[in-house]
Design a protein around this nucleic acid. Structure first.
Lengths: 130, 130
DNA sequence: ATATATGTTATATTTGTAATATAACATAAA
DNA sequence: TTTATGTTATATTACAAATATAACATATAT
């Protein structure tokens, strides 16, 4: 499995899980319809509690990235990821505003930012097998 | 004062404070050397506890945005904001990666993102008096 | 001198979240 | 009938956010 948890991080474990699954989908390492490990399996692989995995799965289901079936298990939504709506875009802007304010003050101008963003897009596109 | 706290938000109050002060500096509503309200004054204006304001101030001092003097009070760092270093840039990229992954999946492509970012830069430049 | 205002320190309490630990449940599939 | 799935329930531990009070040290104003 591609999951790697940093137990020193101040990012909660269930958030790290959500992030890595979303990144996995974006990198196409996980395709619509693909199955994810059971909550017990992933929990024991990583060495964490089943409820922590369940929390991540449930929140990704709530957002529309995953489909959870009581007996069959968990799969990547076959209909593809949820699309951005007004609410999502509004929240995104509210998140970006203070980030960009700080970034600007710290001397990272728009050009620098765009180059960082390009770098991240490359990370998401290239790594087909890693 | 320009501070407006959303008590419904899941963003902690002290984080909202930090964000709004940084945005204030970026918009040049607050200039280097400008004085901020005392912890007690701001706390009572907003209707929160003095320690919550103090926590925000201390963390901004720690980052280099503010100078705190035991008797004179709190001012915006006269030497200007702290500049980005390697650590900051690394953390920034780690924050952006999952954001951009989700955004991409949701159908917001690079062009859309750049237009959102431009919109935010405008917000930071225009509002000289509001 | 005295009072005032500053940030600071200390202690305690309440509330909520993250994470874990155990156990049991319902049910499709083997 | 067994196994594996997610689900639900209960409890516990650890920590963070926010508050409440009180006292402290000290530069500045009166």
């Amino acid at each position: 499995m591609f999951i790697q948890i940093n137990f020193e991080s101040d990012v909660p474990i269930y958030e790290q899980l959500k992030n890595q699954i979303i990144i996995g989908i974006a990198k196409k390492e996980l395709a619509p319809g693909d199955r994810l490990p059971s909550v017990r399996k992933l929990a024991s692989d990583i060495g964490i509690n089943l409820h922590t995995v369940n929390k991540a799965y449930k929140q990704l289901e709530e957002k529309g990235f995953l489909i959870i079936h009581r007996q069959k298990g968990v799969i990547i939504n076959p209909d593809g990821p949820p699309q951005a709506d007004e609410t999502y875009t509004k929240t995104l802007k509210e998140t970006l505003l203070p980030m960009i304010a700080e970034l600007e003050l710290r001397g990272i101008d728009k050009i620098n930012l765009l180059s960082i963003i390009n770098e991240i897009y490359e990370q998401l596109e290239v790594d087909r097998d890693e």
